[in-house]
Design a protein around this nucleic acid. Structure first.
Lengths: 149, 149
DNA sequence: TCTCTATTGAGATCTAATTTCAATTTTGAT
DNA sequence: ATCAAAATTGAAATTAGATCTCAATAGAGA
């Protein structure tokens, strides 16, 4: 389970270490994001915050996301139709996304062999791993039954 | 080695099979793309065609790329700063891209274990694989030496 | 050759993301 | 607490890749 207060304290330290200011907006965005169990995008997050009475602008969200990525809390996982999708990656290992291009369903696959394989290569190249996009695009069984592709 | 005339004939058949028309523009775009040994983007391709006296518009390139992807000649491999990058995938197997976020260098890794792993999962899920994005973002050794991250 | 339909180029349009800027807030120092 | 310097914010303007519109053109079967 994720300990929010610990994360917020870490985030504050991260922000401070960069000589930036720890604002209520940044904290509120992080708290809201931590609630996501799966993928989200900026519009979705903005609407969610609005629904709760928050006045946080999209601009602030766009400005905060790179910080959260840099701090290691979230990752951009894929882009579709010009829109970026993110997910919380705390305690999450690299995983494959199988994305159906027809119904847009996304399925996650976590495979220790995959993780090992990636880390092995990164180690060999002395590459410092920050994030990853591992998407497999195709069509799922249900959509193929529907007479497509 | 790639046999261009065979590919063009296949492409013509593909276009015809969809009830579309085989135009000089489409052929020219495919021929030009087949020359790329690594990644390219629309602007780059458009400039290259222009340099050779071609009048092909960007609109036509944008309209042709999805056909080439569907026909299996190219793939969109990653997006960076709002721009999509493509590569020729004829005779190419799934491979990882290690992308340095500092110097933007991209290194390809082909690993039979990776291919096997992906195909295994796809088969299990009865997922029809069309394309993939396998990007690992991070920093390379040289850039880390430069005092960053 | 004729006709139907797809395709093209040029420019308009769309829209996610970024930038600008004045007002506000944070924060460390006093 | 108060103050000043610098970062941050929201709103709106701007940017830019990608898509769409449309009139003119060209491919392809009859």
């Amino acid at each position: 389970m994720i300990d929010i207060s610990e994360i917020l304290e870490n985030f504050r330290a991260f922000i401070k270490s960069k000589g930036l200011k720890y604002t209520p907006e940044r904290e509120e965005i992080l708290i809201e994001i931590l609630k996501y169990k799966d993928h989200f995008d900026v519009d979705e997050l903005h609407m969610e915050l609005k629904k709760k009475g928050s006045k946080i602008s999209k601009a602030s969200i766009y400005r905060t996301l790179p910080l959260l990525i840099e701090a290691g809390y979230i990752q951009e996982v894929y882009k579709q139709e010009g829109r970026a999708y993110y997910e919380v990656v705390i305690n999450k290992l690299p995983h494959l996304h199988f994305i159906c291009i027809k119904c847009k369903k996304v399925e996650e696959i976590i495979d220790p062999k995959l993780i090992e394989l990636i880390q092995e290569h990164a180690k060999k190249k002395e590459f410092h791993l920050l994030s990853y996009h591992l998407e497999i695009f195709g069509t799922c069984l249900e959509c193929r039954k529907g007479g497509m592709v």
